[in-house]
Write a protein that binds this DNA or RNA. Structure first.
Lengths: 193, 193
DNA sequence: CTCGGTGTGGACCAGTCGGTCCAAACAATG
DNA sequence: CATTGTTTGGACCGACTGGTCCACACCGAG
């Protein structure tokens, strides 16, 4: 008796993600999303609860496709030192690859807390926490293997690596060019030496 | 023949700065500024060109009072190593001191380029450049004095220190607490060792 | 083929935005 | 005092915001 939608919800979330990523939450209007997806207003509100809901799903998708996937791949690398340097090289490459200089949606969102509720904040906080944990695990493995000096303190260093990541992502949005970003990534290696 | 204003322009800029700092450019409405200053709409547009102009002046004031002043004080410190560590300690202290967790207006603005014109971008870019130069000068002085190892490369390291600064300012907005920020600042010292 | 319920398009809403306009208030000058 | 040029308050503007509503198109079940 029902009737199937003429569009794929997942496609809409993906498009919305692109727009939110480029223009930020406040800077994105529902009309922008309507324009970029072709889905009409009524249908949009029929499929989603509203702007916040749309953003939440977009953020979840981004976090899953970008950070989670990247960490999953890196967990597979045996050498923890290589895992960390590969991580930073990838971040720099991603930052330079994007002509729109959008940076990282999660980090951008962390500077935009006022607009968002607990649920969004939790996603962002979890992302930072899991990143820190990833680095910490890698450092501890390096200790066991003897490839990372014992003088490298796991928790403080992992937090500094996250700070460097944030710095690269933010400065990569315009303030610094390719050479600078690569140099920063290289300094990350010094922190684990 | 004329008639003197009933308010001080500088006070208004200062108030506007506080509001922009807390709520961001897009998140701040002219009505917000009217409310927080008590200056009425007509008078405001009589004294300033508009929202952009107001923001520009607020940003200039912030940059001058915060960054420039801080750097000026630190330039006076003889020991470059101490100058750098004092810098980071001050940043962490400032971040923790502010209950509103507003971070740094300049850095926040660097993630909000779409709304702004060349003039604003130039201020932000100059701020990052001058910070990098400050660190670089300090490192070179350390080389001369022998207090900073020759293996510490001036340009890459100074850029990494800026990235760490950005990381602290962004993560200090909510994602990380006092201990974490202090640990990150401590790692900055490792970069110049 | 009819019926029932879902999806669709777009007119419409109240609220807010940045910005304009202007009559009235005002103080200094002649 | 009258004249002059500015400041002031607030009504007002068109554009846009996120969100609602509903007549209508549509398809599957009976």
């Amino acid at each position: 008796m029902p009737w199937e939608k003429s569009f794929d919800e997942s496609d809409v979330v993906d498009q919305a993600m692109q727009v939110f990523w480029e223009k930020g939450y406040a800077g994105t209007s529902i009309s922008d999303i309507i324009e970029s997806t072709g889905v009409k207003r009524g249908s949009l509100y029929n499929a989603f609860e509203g702007k916040q809901d749309l953003f939440l799903r977009a953020l979840l998708k981004y976090d899953d496709e970008q950070r989670r996937q990247r960490l999953r791949q890196l967990e597979a690398i045996d050498d923890p030192r290589e895992a960390i340097t590969t991580f930073f090289d990838g971040i720099v490459k991603d930052s330079l690859k994007d002509p729109a200089r959008r940076g990282c949606l999660v980090i951008n969102t962390s500077l935009d807390y006022e607009h968002h509720d607990e649920e969004v904040r939790k996603i962002v906080d979890d992302a930072f926490r899991e990143l820190t944990d990833f680095f910490e695990r890698a450092i501890r493995r390096g200790h066991e293997q003897g490839t990372i000096p014992a003088t490298v303190e796991p928790r403080p260093t992992s937090r500094a690596l996250v700070a460097l990541l944030v710095g690269i992502r933010v400065l990569g949005r315009g303030a610094m060019g390719r050479t600078a970003l690569q140099q920063i990534a290289a300094q990350a290696k010094r922190l684990i030496s």
